[in-house]
Design a protein around this nucleic acid. Structure first.
Lengths: 246, 246
DNA sequence: ATAAAACAGTTGTCAGACAAAAGATTTCAT
DNA sequence: ATGAAATCTTTTGTCTGACAACTGTTTTAT
């Protein structure tokens, strides 16, 4: 590791924050590439001229952000860009029912826009991939023991693929963040089964309309169809009285 | 401070993460109210049965999230809910020009949806507030030394007020997050002046159309008008070759 | 009574040590 | 020679104790 990799700080505010900022800039500028190993904490503390505890706090922040990952006995590594998410939902946001519904409402808007973008930006390759997930949803009938989970997974994959086809990474990241948060709060199997039980032919039809709009390259129709699905989904969820505040 | 405020942990994975989680749950459940002071780090380390360094890392994470705030020589305090934001954009997202444009694209979609919601949800009170910001933009002519900043501030306030009128706190938080991030990356005065110089009568007209749609309660028109403005704004920004990669 | 000085409590930082985990190396039985 | 087991080395994770910097309070001097 070269000597002057990091800018020497002159202790302005909070040391760990400055260190974290310096390291993340070293990553941003490409001096530290994904997969590469960071200097050891001892080395970093020497380079920055601070105690190891300070370096540890800084590294802890970056780990929290998913920018780096550390393994005891091995070292800390720069995460792959795919693994780090641009958006994080704060731990302060609790799993209250009303907030969950608002979050779904937000997702509705974002997902609809992603569909609109994807309608014009999607490649043929994207389209076949999206079609595959649609087929997966259709095929997931009541055979397996956890067909409910299969359906929901395929549905998530379907809309994630659409976001990816939009060509805007932020849509992908954002949808991913919401999805993670929602599925964390909805991790109860009972709830998932309840949601899946609502799954009728008409829901599959909602997805199919979205797909057709993407196929046709019709942005406006894709937007409407997507919004239609998520609004109905939110309504179905809201109507279920058995999903209480967690 | 009562004895059993926090659940005693049984050291499963990463100690600081568990501590942070435990504390944030104590806040979530209302055991620690906003403005209240946390136990001292020494006390916490005793209660959890870990070293102070571990507690410090945990507190550091929560500070990073804006959930708590600490002052040397005084203590750590639970932040007011208003001060903590639901969404955070990761430090891994750098100020590259292309990413900035993608972020604006995402904002377009979100803001358009917020307008659509606000068109039906806004109260008369909301409307007059939004009108005030519109007037502020119109009044900010070339008198003051920083009329450019005034215009941009008023514009931000205008669309923030619309998001607030939607009744969905997540839209507010999300717009706020993007706004913070964008303005951080665009903090150069030169850039702001450049953007403001593009400010013609037609831009004000774009905002006015949005307002009229909100006034009329026309969700679809509000959506279109908002999207129209942000798409044009992104285009204006993209066309400026003098805004280089930072 | 007021201003300065000492005090106590808390966070921020430092230094050194040991524990735990993973990889690299050596040893040893076959 | 070979494969497995034991040992060593490196690095992160945690612990301990100490001091520095800051703040609010109390005491003291004028």
């Amino acid at each position: 590791m070269t000597a002057g990799l990091f800018e020497r700080i002159d202790r302005p505010r909070r040391l760990p924050d400055e260190i974290a900022r310096s390291i993340s800039e070293a990553i941003a500028s490409g001096q530290l590439k994904p997969g590469e190993r960071l200097p050891t904490e001892q080395s970093l503390s020497a380079q920055f001229g601070v105690a190891r505890t300070v370096v540890r706090e800084a590294v802890s922040l970056l780990k929290y952000d998913g920018i780096i990952d550390s393994k005891r006995g091995v070292g800390a590594f720069v995460s792959e860009p795919a693994a780090r998410s641009a958006f994080r939902i704060s731990a302060a946001c609790f799993e209250k029912r009303r907030q969950l519904i608002q979050l779904l409402e937000l997702r509705t808007g974002v997902q609809a826009e992603a569909s609109a973008l994807a309608a014009v930006a999607r490649s043929q390759r994207d389209l076949t991939r999206i079609a595959r997930y649609l087929a997966e949803m259709a095929d997931a009938t009541e055979e397996g023991p956890d067909y409910a989970a299969q359906r929901l997974d395929a549905e998530d994959a379907f809309y994630r693929a659409i976001a990816e086809s939009s060509g805007n990474t932020y849509y992908v990241e954002f949808v991913g963040m919401i999805e993670r948060n929602v599925s964390e709060n909805l991790r109860s199997v009972a709830i998932k089964n309840a949601m899946a039980s609502e799954w009728g032919r008409e829901v599959l039809e909602e997805h199919r309309v979205v797909y057709q709009a993407l196929d046709a390259g019709d942005a406006e129709r894709a937007r409407l169809a997507t919004r239609n699905h998520f609004e109905r989904a939110a309504q179905r969820l809201a109507n279920r009285a058995d999903i209480a505040d967690v």
